[in-house]
C-alpha cells in the first residue's frame, strides 16, 4: 500500500486534482470559483500527461546516445498547447464573468437563476 503510494504518488495527485476540480465545479455556486475549479481539473489532466510521458527503458526520440530514463517530449508539447487553450478559455470565462457582474451585480449562480426566471 505504502509502496504503491510512493511509486505512484503522481497519479494520486492527478486523481486528487481532478476530484477537487469537479467538486468545486459542482458544489460552488460562485462563478469565479467554478472557473477556478475548471482550471484545477485541467491541471490534473496536464499532470497526467506529463507524468505518463515518463517511460523507463525508452530511448530518446532525437538524440541517439547515452542511457538512463528519458522523457517522451511529445506529451509535453501537447500539454503546452493544451495549457494555451486552457488559458484562452480562462480568459474568455473571466471576461464573461466581468460582464455578468456588470449586468447583474452578483456572481452567485442561485441568485442568477432566480433573476433569470423573473
Amino acid at each position: 500500500m505504502i509502496d504503491t503510494f510512493l511509486t505512484h504518488y503522481n497519479y494520486y495527485a492527478v486523481v486528487a486534482l481532478l476530484g477537487i476540480g469537479v467538486y468545486m465545479l459542482v458544489e460552488s455556486s460562485n462563478l469565479v470559483k467554478k472557473v477556478i475549479g475548471m482550471n484545477v481539473f485541467q491541471t490534473g489532466i496536464f499532470l497526467f500527461f506529463v507524468t505518463a510521458a515518463y517511460r523507463s527503458g525508452a530511448g530518446p526520440a532525437v538524440v541517439h546516445e547515452g542511457g538512463g530514463p528519458y522523457v517522451s517530449p511529445l506529451p509535453h508539447v501537447l500539454i503546452l498547447t493544451a495549457i494555451v487553450v486552457g488559458v484562452s478559455l480562462t480568459a474568455v470565462a473571466l471576461a464573461l464573468i466581468v460582464r455578468i457582474y456588470a449586468e447583474y451585480g452578483t456572481l452567485d449562480e442561485e441568485v442568477l437563476r432566480e433573476l433569470d426566471h423573473d
Binding site: 465545479l25 462563478l31 467554478k34 472557473v35 475548471m38 478559455l89 474568455v92 470565462a93 464573461l96 464573468i97 460582464r99 455578468i100 449586468e103 447583474y104 442568477l112 433569470d116
Partner: peptide, 12 residues
Amino acid sequence: ASAAVAALKYLI
C-alpha cells in the same frame, strides 16, 4: 445579458 450567463455555462 442572459446570453453571457448562457455562454459561461456553455463554456464550463
